[in-house]
Design a protein around this nucleic acid. Structure first.
Lengths: 198, 198, 198, 198
DNA sequence: GTCTAAACGAGACGGTACGTCCGGTCTTACA
DNA sequence: TGTAAGACCGGACGTACCGTCTCGTTTAGAC
């Protein structure tokens, strides 16, 4: 029968997306507004109008919830859009990123980093769900830069990525000075100056 | 002249250095062993053989205690010793620092960073008590490098420091890959390549 | 008619009577055994096998818990049962009360009185929950005594009640001499001798 | 040496009564003003301008201090002065006592009673230092009353004293209604009515 | 249309750590 | 030696959340 191949479709009430969305939204807002303190399961539940138990049904602990909130709402906003010459692209993207990170998103990220220190699961999610994919993306662009001759051949891509993004994360979590697009641009210039073909 | 050194010596029972030292030592050990979770006032008190109230007499909250423990014990271990050519000095020091940070100290630092996200006082202490002084020190060495011609004149010292140490902090708090002296050396090489006089 | 008794049954998990009962029982035992010192929220929680937070969910502080324990367990044991001639009834009841108060219940009461000195809420609860109701009951019996001619008409009921029960409370909280049924009997005799119709 | 025959005159600084007096005064004021809560060793020390350790030198714990404060300052103020016919004397004295107890002294006494519940030493001091002497005094007056024919011969003095003073203490520690001289007078009248010779 | 199992809200519960308060002891400097 | 100052241990307080659990209610799909 043709219908036999349909997905089994379990019995009871289906999951009702609105609740989940409301929870993630609330989680995000709290992270943005108050950072990691204030990001309480109780506070999220209250703001979302959901029950604490519902949150625990879908996420194992508050680290996971924080990550999910970030990935679902914030991360998409800062997606890369690669277009022109690799070096110029990266520089422009870094300036955009710096701009975005200097605001609420920075608070969210530092909250996630903080939570990662105590919860290995959160760390894993942060690395695999956010950091690694973006590093890979950056490396691909850098390879294009090598191919088209903008960059030296014998560079260590990981170190370059560390050089480009490390300082940004550094200033997010150790805010000894504000982050600005201008600063990010000068940072990119300096890094790339050391990567020009001889 | 002899009377000039007379310290006033306050009235009551003097502070009994052993207790304070034991507390800081215990605080450090717990930070190193277990990171920020497990770093509990109660645990510190128990390990130090002190009363919780004694801890609260001297430090207002656990963030402050964590910072104090770090500054008193760990920080001295990774003091700089500048000697020879600035570039070479910095590279060698970065490799040492990377080595040290890759172990227990890294865990302590990431714990402090985490705590800084929720407690502004801890952040302030971290910046003023550790980050800023070390940045200043690094900048002084870089200036020596400019003076002796190893480095370009028109460099932004803050950005250079960010480039050198940002990636290290980044890898401490976002451990996507291990920290090693070799990695730090290559990082230094790459940064300095962009700073050579034309 | 049958639907009229429909209790609304609130939403969440119902209250689980066993816990509350266990807590009150433990509270009572501790009050009886050790008086007010030793009556610690922690001790009650430990003996009841409950969490401290559960106790605080239902009672705002330890005074309230002490009162609740007393009212739930001890108070019922010393309820009055009025039967025959009012004077004789009261005398017999006083002897019973003296007997009961001379034991563990006395310790509980003096503990409550002690707590009342520092916590106005406990005082309020003691007065409204125990003292006043029993005074009213006694006054009702005395009025019956007036009606049936056993007692003078022009007596001040409050003063009579003070005369009858005041000495008993006095000996509970200021134990200059033991309380006994015999003593209570003689006390009643003496008071009533002054209340006979001329 | 001729100086050897001088009075022994112990070595160091003599004891300086002022401190002790100031401490007792402060203790009393705190008891009167705030009852038993608020009566803190620290508070007493602060108000007296003395050191906590000085208090502990002279009194073993706060119960003892409270008792000492009461006995030294408050108790003398409410001493009896027997003059005329025993019955009339007692009635008048009860009215005075009621008047005094209804104010600050009442608060002090109930604080002492409260403390007696947890500290046997305080109880002992209260009984032996205040309650028993005054009971003995009252009994002596009552015996005079018997001798001069105002009172029956076959009365139990202890019960009479309980009847007279028990209600007053009762209303102090269980303030279900205010204490007044008028109330005390009526109370005395009623008790003595039952003690008239046949 | 009814049945039914999952989703969901509500909230009780055992725990753990917090930061505070205070008691009582002990150690020092000064008079 | 008495006193002031104050460090120290210890224990209970009441608070805030955590994560688990047990209910009653709702609801979309299966029958």
């Amino acid at each position: 029968m043709s219908a036999s191949k349909r997905q089994p479709r379990r019995r009871g009430r289906p999951q009702g997306d609105e609740v989940k969305v409301a929870i993630l939204k609330a989680a995000n807002e709290l992270l943005e507004e108050q950072g990691y303190s204030g990001f309480t399961i109780e506070a999220v539940a209250a703001r979302a109008g959901a029950a604490r138990s519902t949150i625990y049904r879908w996420w194992p602990n508050r680290g996971a919830l924080a990550m999910a909130g970030f990935l679902s709402e914030t991360a998409p906003k800062i997606a890369y859009k690669w277009t022109k010459s690799p070096i110029s692209d990266i520089k422009k993207q870094m300036m955009v990123v710096a701009e975005v990170y200097s605001g609420k998103v920075g608070r969210t990220i530092s909250a996630l980093v903080a939570q990662s220190q105590r919860d290995p699961e959160t760390l894993k999610a942060l690395l695999e769900g956010y950091v690694q994919p973006r590093r890979e993306e950056a490396k691909r662009v850098l390879m294009r830069g090598i191919e088209c001759g903008e960059l030296r051949k014998n560079i260590d891509l990981d170190i370059v990525v560390d050089s480009l993004y490390g300082p940004i994360w550094y200033r997010i979590v150790v805010p000894h000075a504000p982050i600005s697009a201008r600063w990010a641009g000068k940072l990119a210039d300096q890094v790339f100056r050391g990567l020009r073909p001889e």
